[in-house]
Design a protein around this nucleic acid. Structure first.
Lengths: 127, 127
DNA sequence: CTGCGATATGTTCTTGGAAACATATCTGAG
DNA sequence: CTCAGATATGTTTCCAAGAACATATCGCAG
């Protein structure tokens, strides 16, 4: 099932952003944030884990919730643990699409990317 | 030969950057700059045409020339028209690879991108 | 009913990156 | 031999994005 997929931190790697319109885009920052919210169950913890201020994390969440028809993140205040946040089904779907796109695009472009890499200067020469 | 390719300014559009290593990446800014240098034959004119300062344009050119084994842009100083710049064969190849990647990736991801677009909020509702 | 821990939101402060400015240099033309 | 027009490179100025700070609110636990 899960075939060995290339380490996304390995070096020729791809970052992309989809621009749907003015002030309406989806990029690696938002995707990572979604992933960490899913993992941590908290906007603030997600932000901390990527050394992002709570303010900025909350701002991005608000932006995402406004740009899609249904919100991607649901949050609750108060309670025994103070509150929390989790991905909605839409949020899971968006994250999934983004991750899938990364795989698909990396794969489709691997030839060209390799060709570019082959043209790079050798980093290990005398400079 | 040239089949009708989608207008790259039309709305769900893609921007991407390839990270080869620290301080070693290729993105839309550098690609556009290369294209305009090819068109105008001048670094300063290319910069002006995309409202970029000459300093910045020159800096990007220097960065590109250093990161690849062979320079992408050749420039001459002095002469009847003051000087100029043009793409080397390597420069043409790099630009070509980048443009090709955009087409390939957009095509390969069209399904997922369309799916995401379908989930967007309707911009024309009462807000 | 008080305190805790998280969300929610506004205000102020800081800083890195780009713009703007300033020169120096090159070379063919006249 | 000077001028024009472009490259080449350093210095200063500016500004907006983000960090930092400050509160307000919520709701269960105890």
């Amino acid at each position: 099932m899960t075939q060995p997929q290339p380490d996304p931190t390995e070096d020729p790697r791809l970052r992309f952003r989809i621009l749907f319109g003015p002030d309406c885009y989806l990029g690696p920052g938002k995707a990572d944030l979604l992933e960490r919210i899913r993992e941590t169950g908290s906007i603030s913890a997600a932000g901390r884990s990527m050394s992002m201020s709570y303010k900025r994390a909350w701002l991005l969440v608000e932006e995402m919730n406004r740009m899609f028809r249904d919100p991607l993140v649901e949050s609750t205040r108060g309670g025994s643990k103070g509150g929390g946040a989790r991905l909605t089904a839409t949020g899971e779907a968006v994250l999934d699409h983004y991750r899938a796109l990364h795989r698909i695009m990396t794969d489709a472009g691997s030839n060209r990317i390799a060709a570019l890499k082959a043209m790079l200067a050798d980093m290990s020469d005398g400079k």
